[in-house]
Design a protein around this nucleic acid. Structure first.
Length: 606
RNA sequence: GGUCCCGUAGCUCAGCUGGAUAGAGCACCUGCCUUCUAAGCAGGCGGCCGUUGGUUCGAAUCCAACCGGGAUCGCCA
């Protein structure tokens, strides 16, 4: 079997065997290693699909012109969609018949081309892992939007998806907030202060840090060395003591911990709700932090790990090009990675059918996940091959890296507020919404502001670090989410005026589509629609929403060019009007689904 | 220093399973609202694709080295 292009579309799938038999008949069979690659014909040439025959010249024993012509002639005879062809240098440009395109358009009008049938696979996507001592920031947003979009794409690709977050609810960080609140809080609560719960707890984390720094400075002035002072600051000792009390189940500490975490969850949930994301299950570190120890000891017994003289347990990954890594301390206590080993095992026990688990975590943990996956594989779990670290790059500010210590962190809630305010300013100025109520406007501007933010973060290749300029990035024109929303709203308006049902739905296209000759503007749009399923497949497989996001943009851009120059409702010929309405509708529905895959909503009007 | 990631227009990014003259958006300049939403469309300006070698009929794309930026190399999480 000739290796097909990994993400080829259905037209290519249909043509490939014909091309192969053309070769076989004309020049003899093709060796497996030689791949036939289709590419879209460049706009400056006539045609829709192109094959470059250069790689086959040795096989054909003829020049590029003759080789391409021979194949082209064979295709016209044997492949229905290929109407005619031309050859430029070594490029065989095929013209696909309008009947093929309109046939596809008809199908796109009848079903969701971005929804694949069920695969039977179950995938877990972890896409948030916040600490409970401070509010969410821009970096979390990239993480959340990325993971949520991946979940949606996998659903569209036919997988069952379990969305989870892990909440780091215990540890020294939350104890710091607790200590500071107990010292300076005077009983302040979200209700008493009007502060969002996560903001309030974050405030005391900052307060802790301030006191801590003062104490360290004081100790150093009194003659201590830097490292000494950092270890002996009283407030830190108190936080450490509190962590021990927590571990000893001290009722008062536990009660305070429950209370303050509760505030944080309320705050997080408000942000999640506004951001439009949700989880099927939350994992709390306080429930899982003791996991993994038994598994490591089992591995030790099986000889997968080894024990050093001091009693600590290690894994040797030097054969994998990595290092030795400690899994249990000499005193037998766990580490972060121990816990992750246990948590992974637990998850696969809880969800027996899981075939994959995706961790959406920043690239600073690349090494950690490499080690984790190797360990789980060494422990012999078959599912270890289905583990994947969806690693994404940091979000930088024009001033450089975000640093909480330096107060340069962009708060998630504030950022969303800004984007929504910007959407509002633009929207009110355009004054197209005179009959909108205040509530309707709020909903719309929320939708647009979030689209701007999500699209901005999702259109970039996840693994690249990206720059976020709070001023320049608040853009609602050009290659943006609102541009795509706008096109959708435009089409919906058109369809309403055509008397089609409100609130979506697919108008049935004309019964006899296909007799018309397509305009270039129409064909461009249909071709982009036609490519979309393959793009979704590729995006879902590679876990890259950016490819989907960029294709959605290409599609609506082509539609806008069509819209601007080709009449739809004003077209006199009913059949042609029907085709253009069907085209418009297919673009709207496909755009809506693509945006759904990105976690972005689209408005009926804007 | 070891390992990994990144380097494309003034700025932000596509393109990278090798193919035709490298594409968008923003910014700047020109046109287009008495026809379906101008958050739009059409056009212009703007590029030693970090550098140097290599593989190839063909390299932004693959390989190597180097330069620049980042991450990581805790018995932290």
């Amino acid at each position: 079997m000739q290796a097909p292009a990994m993400f080829q579309d259905r037209l290519q799938a249909q043509l490939l065997p014909v091309v192969l038999s053309a070769f076989k008949e004309l020049f003899g069979p093709i060796p497996e290693a030689v791949k036939i690659a289709f590419q879209p014909t460049r706009p400056e040439f006539e045609g829709d699909l192109t094959i470059n025959v250069f790689p086959f010249l040795k096989l054909s024993g003829q020049g590029p012109q003759q080789t391409a012509t021979a194949i082209g002639e064979y295709l016209v005879r044997h492949a229905l969609p290929v109407e005619r062809f031309n050859v430029v240098k070594g490029f065989l440009n095929m013209v696909i018949s309008d009947a093929y395109w309109t046939g596809f358009l008809k199908e796109a009008g009848e079903r969701d081309i971005l929804q694949f049938g069920p695969t039977g696979n179950k995938v877990m996507v972890e896409y948030a892992s916040p600490n409970t001592n401070k509010p969410l920031h821009l970096g979390h947003l990239r993480n959340i939007f990325l993971g949520y979009s991946v979940s949606r794409m996998l659903q569209a690709a036919g997988h069952e998806v379990v969305k989870v977050q892990v909440i780091n609810d215990r540890g020294i960080h939350i104890c710091k907030s607790m200590v500071a609140w107990r010292m300076f809080g005077n009983g302040e609560t979200p209700a008493s202060s009007g502060l969002k719960g996560d903001k309030l707890v974050g405030k005391y984390y900052v307060a802790f840090d301030k006191v801590y720094k003062e104490e360290v400075a004081g100790l150093m002035a009194a003659g201590k060395s830097g490292p000494e002072a950092e270890k002996q600051a009283p407030i830190l000792l108190e936080a450490q003591a509190m962590l021990r009390q927590w571990e000893a189940n001290d009722p008062q500490v536990r009660a305070l911990w429950e209370k303050m975490n509760g505030w944080v969850y309320e705050g997080f949930n408000a942000t999640y709700a506004r951001a439009g994301v949700d989880f099927d299950k939350n994992y709390y570190e306080s429930n899982t932090y003791l996991l993994g120890k038994e598994d490591v000891l089992k591995g030790l017994a099986k000889g997968v790990f080894f024990r050093k003289d001091d009693g600590s347990v290690w894994v040797d990954n030097t054969a994998e090009g990595l290092d030795e890594k400690v899994l249990l301390r000499a005193d037998g206590t766990s580490l972060y990675i121990t816990q992750d080993i246990g948590t992974a095992i637990k998850r696969f026990e809880e969800f027996p059918g899981l075939s994959r688990m995706i961790y959406t975590v920043g690239n600073e943990q690349d090494y950690h996940f490499k080690v984790l996956f190797i360990i789980l594989k060494k422990l012999g779990f078959a599912w270890a091959d289905g583990l994947f670290h969806l690693s994404y790059g940091m979000v930088d500010l024009p001033s450089g890296k975000m640093k909480s210590r330096e107060g340069t962190v962009v708060d998630a809630d504030d950022l969303i507020d800004e984007m929504v305010a910007e959407a509002r300013a633009t929207g009110e100025q355009l004054s197209k919404l005179d009959d909108f109520s205040g509530e309707e406007r709020n909903t719309l501007f929320e939708m647009i502001g979030l689209a701007a933010l999500k699209y901005f973060l999702l259109k970039v290749d996840p693994k690249k670090r990206m720059l976020f300029d709070p001023k320049a990035s608040i853009d609602l024109q050009g290659h943006t989410g609102p541009f795509i929303q706008y096109t959708y709203a435009r089409i919906r308006s058109l369809l309403r005026k055509a008397g089609l049902p409100v609130g979506g739905g697919r108008p049935s296209g004309p019964a006899a589509m296909g007799s018309q000759q397509l305009l270039p503007e129409e064909k461009n749009v249909i071709k982009l629609l036609h490519q979309f399923p393959a793009v979704l497949n590729e995006s879902a497989t590679k876990l890259e929403p950016s490819a989907l996001a960029n294709h959605a943009y290409e599609l609506v851009k082509a539609y806008n060019a069509f819209y601007q120059t080709v009449p739809v409702l004003k077209e006199g010929d009913a059949e042609i009007r029907g085709l253009r309405l069907a085209l418009s509708s297919a673009v709207a529905e496909t755009t809506r689904k693509a945006m759904w895959c990105l976690g972005i909503e689209v408005p009926e009007r804007m």
